[in-house]
Structure formats: structure tokens, C-alpha cells
């Protein structure tokens, strides 16, 4: 019997906004369960600890965007937006813009030492607390990110292997040493507070599209 878990196409609620008829739409919410989400090019055997994942019955999805595998859990917030536009965006600059807005709005909640690291991560100091990726299709950009509010990093250690590619600032650190949560860094913020901060960021980003 195969030890590989079944791989499903990404179908979480945030993706429905990509199908919506609106030019601009967004979603912020917490996953209803634990999911493992592979990047578009990730190989299931290379990315996850298949035995643990299958034993625990974790649902494994593959998203259409790039990047490495992530875990989603109810102790995290996922946030996504789509923007249809004839204006062509530079993805690297878009990541920078989004992160600058997130830093601005999360800082207002008292979170310190926030940095934009790697291509699109947000960190507190050298510890990653948010990852993101995007894809474009039919002149529409779809961006999605996940912020770790209070999930235990041991969960990541248990299910995910060390990624095949890593940003310079990771410096070969294990998930345990590299990833953190807001709670672990000493910030006990409510989901409502964080949702508002992220929502403000997304709406400010939209202004940049309109401008």
C-alpha cells in the first residue's frame, strides 16, 4: 500500500475569489482544519513526511502558485486578494509593497522588529511569521499569504521536510529554528485585531492599483 497521501487541487475558500466576477476581491479567514499545501512544482515525496501525514490523515493540497510547501491550521490566518488590471505589475515590487503595508499596519498593534525578508516573507527579527506567493492569469493577479498566530512550530517539523530552496536569511535552519508565531514572539493578539490590520493593508494596496 502506498504511503503517499492523496494530493488534491487547492480548493480552500480564499480561492473562490479568483473565480468571482469582481475585478477586485479579497478574503481573510482561518482554515477550518490542518492542511498541507504544496507549491506548484513541489514533489510530494520531496516536500512532506508522507508517513506522518498519512498516519494523521492530514489533507494535502497543491496550489497553483509558486513557492515551497506550507502548513495551514486554525491557529493561522490566511489572506488573499485578486486584482484584474491592464496595468502590469512587477511581482517583486508588489511583494515589497504588500509587506510594507502589512508591516505598517501590524506595527500599529504593537508588533516590533517586523521585516520583509527573502522574496516575500515577513519576519520578526530573523524568525519567519508569514509566507506568501502569487500567480497571474488572464491579467488577474492572485496573491495569498498565511500568518502564523499561535501554531506550534513542531507541527511544521512533523509534517514538512526541509525545503529544496530557501531564502538567504534562513541559513539552513530547521523549521523549528526558522519559523515562529506571533504568540511565541510574545504577542497575544486577537484574530479580529489581526484581521482588521490585514484588511487595511489589502485596501491600501488596492489604492496603489487604482493610482
Amino acid at each position: 500500500m502506498s504511503t503517499q497521501p492523496v494530493l488534491y487541487a487547492y480548493n480552500l475558500p480564499d480561492y473562490t475569489i479568483f473565480e468571482s466576477l469582481k475585478d477586485f476581491d479579497y478574503y481573510i479567514g482561518e482554515p477550518d482544519n490542518i492542511y498541507i499545501v504544496l507549491g506548484r512544482s513541489n514533489n510530494i515525496e520531496g516536500a512532506i513526511n508522507c508517513e506522518n501525514v498519512k498516519k494523521d490523515g492530514i489533507i494535502t493540497l497543491k496550489r497553483p502558485s509558486g513557492g515551497e510547501s506550507v502548513i495551514l491550521s486554525p491557529n493561522m490566518l490566511i489572506f488573499s486578494f485578486k486584482q484584474k488590471s491592464d496595468k502590469i505589475q512587477n511581482p517583486a515590487n508588489l511583494f515589497k509593497l504588500i509587506n510594507s503595508k502589512l508591516i505598517e499596519n501590524l506595527s500599529k498593534l504593537g508588533i516590533e522588529n517586523l521585516y520583509s525578508k527573502g522574496i516575500s516573507d515577513l519576519s520578526i527579527g530573523e524568525k519567519k511569521i508569514m509566507g506568501s506567493s502569487m500567480f497571474t492569469k488572464n491579467k488577474t493577479i492572485f496573491y495569498h499569504g498565511v500568518l502564523n498566530i499561535s501554531e506550534d512550530v513542531e507541527l511544521i517539523e512533523k509534517y514538512l521536510k526541509h525545503p529544496s530552496k530557501e531564502p538567504d536569511y534562513r541559513k539552513k535552519r530547521s523549521h523549528r529554528e526558522f519559523v515562529s508565531s506571533l504568540q511565541r514572539e510574545g504577542y497575544n493578539l486577537t484574530k479580529a485585531e489581526l484581521t482588521t490590520a490585514i484588511e487595511n493593508s489589502i485596501l491600501e494596496i488596492r489604492e496603489a492599483f487604482i493610482d
Binding site: 506548484r40 512544482s41 497553483p64 502558485s65 509558486g66 513557492g67 491592464d86 502590469i88 511581482p91 511583494f95 522574496i119 516575500s120 506568501s132 506567493s133 502569487m134 500567480f135 497571474t136 492569469k137 488572464n138 491579467k139 530552496k165
Partner: peptide
């Protein structure tokens, strides 16, 4: 001009190139 030529993937982005 603007029609999609190819979809490319880099580390974080999958995108159509017009």
C-alpha cells in the same frame, strides 16, 4: 500585444507573460 505567450514559474510566482 498583451496576449499571453507563456506561463513561467519562479520561486514565488507563477505568471503568464504577455
Amino acid at each position: 500585444m498583451g496576449e499571453s505567450l507563456v506561463t513561467m514559474e519562479t520561486d514565488k510566482v507563477v505568471t503568464e507573460i504577455p
